[in-house]
Design a binder for these strands. Structure first.
Lengths: 347, 347
DNA sequence: CGTTCCACTGAAAGCGATTTCAACCGAAAT
DNA sequence: ATTTCGGTTGAAATCGCTTTCAGTGGAACG
């Protein structure tokens, strides 16, 4: 019973090794009759193809590598309230890997290490995965991207709007901003401030566009003075919030470009004694834990992490099955609105 | 530069393939001079041995599989407050894998599935890992254990005191109970109740022993009537707590056999209007999130999950390097006391 | 000085799949 | 009736490493 190989199956089914291989790989040119006989032998013997041999003989490894940042991972479980991005990514990826007969291999990398390029290259060359999944912050790291490109391994960047090599899978920032704005409009808000994100990121533009579009669709004018540039940092958020909230005709609601910015807005509001959500509604993006656990918890957009990972796996597997080339496409996935206590009708 | 194999290294270093292999595997019988020449070639070429070929040619696969329960995983990240056992396990395991040149492969299994045995067997026979790490609740599942035993793959059960095949790595329940009791004694408690755990589990006995030993060491008498049997369930905890707390000479502190029991004690205390920690101190084991987030948060023992995983990897790698046999040893690791608001000096 | 032995190095045979390519067979075409 | 062809099947080479075993040279020994 131990060590059942393709040869055993072939003997039992009285066919050649190659025919068994055809059945296992679902190749079309096998007569139904033979296929059935072979399948029966496989089932009876409990045969499962050896992945190492498959990799060595063929062109695929049936392996997908996910690089996780070591510091982030450590921070996550240390803090007891870390975001669960990695878990959700793994879960989604594993489920799809399973379906495709693939396996997910998680590797820790340290973006701060001077051995980073070497490390990535070693992992790739010893594992020779069919594809790599990158999550923030790895998917923005030039060293990692360069190493992947040099190794010519297909990869998907998850949850990052940054331009660059490899395919991208992320949520639809435009639609997210639109829906968040619609939510505020639906509550009765007319004057909605927007602390925009850093212009370097595509996501910022998309979010601003979504905001404008939602207002236009609601027949509301866009007051350009309510659009204040932020830069995704707390400090930037503070100045922007001060500008918005110290005006006599201050907005009744604010959309923050990201979570960090939102926390800054909360900070300023508290200082100015503006109650959230009674005097000011606040909504933001990303749904990091700090925002979920803040007082009050903030209304945000929740990224479909598991779904993104699933899609990433699908893309990589499809590429491997074809020619090992992955198009540089940009895939947008629907997201989830987390309506929480920070948004309410205007005063 | 692409696809550097051992042959290329051998040619560059002007030695045989076998010698390169010896250097890579750190075999002793290579002269320092040769070793250096080979190592230089390896570094210059950026060579990393192909894991698939290594597995196929040799007896090791350099792979360790960790089985995670699908439902638990899903529940964890859905609930937004799941315990981070899995993350911590992965982190610890990965770090050690890295050191040994191994790779960690996480696989989801569904304990409820009727395909469970098949699934486990398939994973093992296609991956042929050098070892398997089992976490609760997988490490108690007879189907999984049976499949592992039949496949003759070494495995480590983490965090479970249950007897059975495979090696175990867990915390020292005896010492944990002792320290928890000492903590209570240190606060000034003399009458400390103990709702013991289910007698089926070795951990229960160990905890009870630790409790007794701590009392003895402090020169306190053991009042046998303060030891009430629980069974690790909420209901069992309720009856035990009622028995303890309705006495006129009720204890000023209670040690609960596990977290579930502790929650039951809290429940009863609240009903009887006994304030924690003012009128009653409460401490427990396991540190599941429910206990961390309860009001007040409970003093507990925190399992050294990452360290246990690291040890598990070390054991498996050592076994693979030797003869592929893993002794059935039981390894105890030090733990961490989480002193929280549920324990205070007696009234 | 020849033999034995040890320490080191290398040649060749797998490991279990895929890939390539040749062989086969019956049906359609000539 | 023979050739041709498309669709199936199988034989053998191959992937990159380890394992096994044979060989080589020099020190130690009689």
């Amino acid at each position: 019973m131990r060590n059942v190989t393709i040869v055993h199956v072939a003997e039992k089914a009285r066919v050649s090794v190659k025919t068994v291989s055809r059945v296992v790989n679902n190749e079309p040119t096998v007569t139904p009759q033979l296929r059935e006989r072979v399948q029966a032998a496989i089932d009876q013997l409990g045969y499962a193809p050896n992945i190492a041999a498959r990799r060595l003989g063929g062109s695929r490894s049936f392996l997908i590598v996910a690089f996780n940042d070591r510091r982030l991972t450590l921070e996550n479980w240390r803090s007891d309230r870390g975001n669960n991005w990695i878990d959700r990514m793994q879960y989604g990826a594993m489920l799809r890997c399973d379906v495709h007969g693939y396996h997910l291999l998680c590797e820790l990398i340290d973006l701060e290490s001077d051995q980073l390029a070497r490390r990535v290259q070693h992992v790739l060359s010893s594992l020779r995965p069919d594809g790599v999944i990158l999550t923030p912050p790895n998917c923005e790291d030039p060293t990692v991207l360069e190493a992947l490109k040099r190794a010519q391994v297909p990869f998907v960047r998850m949850g990052s709007a940054a331009a660059g090599p490899g395919a991208r899978v992320r949520m639809d920032d435009h639609a997210a901003a639109r829906q968040l704005t619609e939510h505020l409009v639906g509550l009765g808000h007319h004057r909605i401030g927007f602390v925009t994100g850093s212009a370097r990121f595509l996501a910022s533009r998309a979010r601003e566009d979504g905001y404008r579009q939602a207002l236009a669709a609601a027949g509301l004018p866009v007051d350009e003075t309510l659009l204040v540039p932020g830069d995704f940092t707390f400090e930037g958020g503070v100045s922007a919030a001060e500008a918005l909230l110290s005006r006599p005709d201050r907005p009744t609601a604010i959309l923050a470009g990201n979570d960090e910015t939102a926390l800054a807005v909360m900070h300023v509001a508290r200082r100015l004694d503006i109650a959230i959500p009674n005097a000011l509604s606040l909504a933001t993006f990303d749904d990091t834990p700090s925002v979920r656990l803040s007082l009050p918890p903030l209304t945000t957009v929740r990224q479909p992490v598991a779904e993104m990972a699933a899609q990433a796996v699908d893309l990589l597997v499809a590429a491997a099955a074809k020619d090992g080339k992955l198009s540089r496409a940009d895939h947008l996935l629907p997201f989830e609105l987390a309506l929480r206590a920070s948004t309410a009708p205007p005063p």
